[in-house]
Amino acid sequence: MSLILVAEQVLNGLQFGIMLFLMAAGLTLIFGVMGLINLAHGSLYMIGAFCAAAVSAATGSFLLGLVAALAGAAAAGALIELVVIRRLYARDHLDQVLATFALILIFSEGTRWLFGSFPLYLDVPAALSGPVTLPGGIQYPLYRLSLILAGLIVAAGLFWLIARTRIGIQIRAGENDREMIAALGVDIDRLYTFVFALGAALAGLAGALVGAIQSVQVGMGEPVLILAFVVIVIGGIGSIRGALVGALLVGLTDTLGGIFLPELFKLFMAPAAATQTGASLASMAIYILMALVLIWRPTGLYGARA
């Protein structure tokens, strides 16, 4: 096990974590501000990927595809907020879960109806394809490196938006006391629609970026959604910083666990059994991490004290 391999796996873990952050950030914002559990967040990820695939197939430009993913997911987000989600804020979480689960089915079957059941083609743009050689002789795909960079830029932008702008102040205020900011004359309906569309756009961006190296298909969002929930529970629900730290932790644990646990077991077990045991334990690793964090801090790493 060479040092280069370890470094490459750390980069893989970071890249995975950053993409999870884009998903988790929207989810945690929506929960923090509106108190809403949005299971349909995975569908917005899928919508982003499909918009990107359809538009870049039609125009031949990956960049236009990304713009379409942002716009399409934000529009879908705003639409479902206005039509469905708005009626759920006052209801309890069970109603929200039921309604947003219904949205998953509607979006999945709607997408299947529009695009068919077979995966769509979406490839990495030519300028970003192929590997680059990093210091230390690590060969790493340029596209994955770009994903890390793009994710960090979006994360920085999001922190700036929350910490330094007027809308950010309103969002933070909304998390603390929604009646009060309504009383102070902030148009709470518009704020909610904006936050929802913002979260949706982030999910759509993640879907489009990841879609280029995975397969763009119906139901691609649900596995990521589960991981995004793990991330926000670890990070503390409602906290953007928690989402970032949680996403990186989950990304690194999952990637490195998958590689090193089988190797670790090989030290004292037969190789075949070690691969089996290691692989099984690795797929549990992030949930074990979540359980440990919750024992240590029941509200998550950066969650508000209950």
Binding site: M1, S2, I4, L5, E8, Q9, N12, Q15, F16, Q139, R144, V210, I213, Q214, S215, M220, P223, T255, G258, I259, A272, T275, Q276, A279, S283
Partner: peptide, 21 residues
Amino acid sequence: NEAYTQLGATDYAAEIAQIKA
């Protein structure tokens, strides 16, 4: 090597790094 991934996995970066090594 004999690598087993989760059924339905979508990211193979870790396995690809092992293949290269």
